[in-house]
Computed example of a mutant assay.
Amino acid sequence: MADDTLAEVLAAGGWAYVGLELGGVTDKPGFMERCVRAFELPEYFGRNWDALADCLTDLSWAPPVRGRLVEVTGWQEYAGAEPDDWNIAREVFAQAVDHWDGTGTELRIALALGGSS
């Protein structure tokens, strides 16, 4: 299913689609920049792990939706180049998912196992 079709299906159910494409990212600044673009993070975003965690658990800056599905593609290169930072990123994502679980504003993050889209 193409990203635009997935986005349309999700939108019909009140969900937002976020495509976080990490192909070619090999460092934390690159990862943070991709997050800025994919999530459309606010200007005050500090481009660090705590700031990412804060933005993903306080979505007052984002349009209200019933839920968000984040599809992370092309992450393997970053995971190989920066395994410690990738583990932190996964922890931040997992904590954000847990934070929104059962709230009526769900957050789901899927790691695509194929290559970049």
Rank of each mutant, 00 (worst) to 15 (best):
C55L: 04
R90M: 10
A11H: 09
V65P: 03
L6N: 00
K28L: 13
G102Y: 06
P29G: 02
L69M: 09
Y17R: 14
R66Q: 11
G80Y: 06
N87S: 12
R37W: 06
E40W: 03
D3Y: 04
W86S: 13
F39T: 07
L52E: 00
L41Q: 06
T103Y: 03
R108N: 15
P83F: 05
D58V: 09
D84I: 11
C35W: 00
N87W: 07
G74I: 00
W15A: 13
F93G: 07
W49I: 09
E106K: 06
M1K: 06
A79H: 10
L20H: 09
A94H: 01
F45H: 04
A110S: 11
A79Y: 03
V65W: 02
G115H: 14
R47G: 04
E8A: 15
L56V: 04
L107R: 00
L52K: 00
A38I: 10
G19T: 04
D54E: 14
P29R: 02
G80R: 12
S60D: 09
G23T: 10
L113S: 11
C55K: 04
Y78D: 03
K28C: 13
G74T: 01
I88L: 06
T73F: 00
I109L: 05
E91R: 09
W15E: 14
E91Q: 14
R34K: 15
Q76L: 13
G24C: 05
R108H: 13
I109C: 05
V65F: 09
G102K: 05
M32S: 06
D58S: 10
S60R: 05
A81F: 10
D101P: 02
A62K: 12
W49H: 03
L59W: 08
G30D: 02
E8N: 12
F93R: 05
A11Q: 14
A11W: 08
T105I: 15
E33I: 06
V97A: 05
L6Y: 01
G104M: 02
F39S: 11
R47L: 15
G14L: 06
Y44A: 12
A96K: 00
A53D: 12
D50I: 09
E33V: 05
V65S: 13
P42C: 07
E106C: 11
A62G: 07
F31Y: 13
R47C: 14
E77C: 11
H99E: 09
F39W: 14
V92A: 03
P83S: 05
A16V: 11
E33T: 14
H99T: 14
A81L: 11
A11C: 08
R34V: 10
E71M: 14
L107H: 01
L107A: 01
R47V: 03
C35F: 00
G104N: 04
P42A: 07
L52W: 01
F45E: 07
K28W: 11
I88G: 01
G23K: 12
V92K: 01
M1P: 15
P63C: 07
E82I: 05
P64Q: 04
V92R: 01
R68W: 07
T57C: 11
L56M: 13
E106L: 15
L41F: 05
D84Q: 13
D98K: 08
R90F: 05
I88V: 14
